[in-house]
Nucleic acid binder design. Structure first.
Lengths: 149, 149
DNA sequence: GTGAATGCAAACTATTTGCAAAGGT
DNA sequence: ACCTTTGCAAATAGTTTGCATTCAC
């Protein structure tokens, strides 16, 4: 659990005349320390240890803000699309544990480039963006379930 | 726009003691003929030409049913996760036009296999499933917007 | 005729908006 | 002091559930 350095965030906000407030710092820390996918409600629960009165609306707004700044990304899964995860890489994707929600980011753009080109050629589409999420079992959860499908 | 053959659907339902009703047939036709991603509300609007009184709840239930049967899939995009598209292939993915929602299905599992293996090796995850959606501009929309980003 | 499926209304969950009050700079 | 941001309440959007009625078989 790395101790997040919030100074870069403060600077980026200041550049745009925006502010680093207590609630924002709380959410930023929660996300920076999160090693799993969190829903807005879960983010709020964790943020309350640092900023007791934080409201859910502020969590939503701050997650949007952090998403714009590129340090957080919404995780889309078949089961639910309500999770957010930290993202450190530029074009990274996520592998999510279906059991404990642990998330690991993986670099990925180069791997997909040939596929994207092939699709563009075959369909005539100009492929501009993609969404890739991987789901499975993290090492710890594999050990916990020696049997099971 | 292919004329869908609903007999296979009727047979599959009958095998399980289930029924091919007017609303189900209407939704199945709409989806089979759809060349774009449709929200449940849009599906209902189209289905009403065949089945005027169809309710939104039935559309939801039927989309779930068709998803189970593997002929429809939910499409997840950054912008919205509320769309459904026909799917003909077994492990196909979708390319969606960000402007007109036109959707084309692409075969894809083999392309991803090496990437999935690499992720499994690097992260220790047992990778069980994945979600891949491509977004871009379809040929028609490229022509309509000779300029624009 | 029987039981599966429908459609409405209502419940529920997730998210957004309006606005007065609070707080960073 | 100024102006952004907050938090509440209420509005909105998407989806699910309960239940009497309808309809495919």
């Amino acid at each position: 659990m790395p101790v997040p350095d919030i100074e870069p965030l403060r600077r980026r906000l200041r550049q745009e005349g925006r502010r680093l407030t207590r609630p924002r710092e709380a959410v930023a820390r929660v996300m920076a320390e999160a090693d799993s996918v969190l829903t807005p409600e879960e983010v709020r629960a964790r943020a309350r240890t640092t900023c007791p009165g934080i409201g859910l609306v502020t969590v939503y707004r701050t997650l949007d803000l952090l998403t714009d700044l590129g340090c957080v990304r919404r995780v889309h899964l078949e089961a639910s699309c309500h999770g957010y995860a930290r993202c450190d890489l530029d074009h990274g994707h996520h592998v999510v544990c279906r059991r404990c929600q642990t998330v690991v980011e993986i670099a990925g753009t180069e791997d997909l480039a040939p596929l994207l080109r092939r699709v563009a050629r075959r369909t005539g589409f100009r492929v501009e963006d993609h969404l890739l999420e991987l789901v499975g079992l993290c090492p710890a959860c594999q050990d916990d379930l020696p049997e099971e499908a």
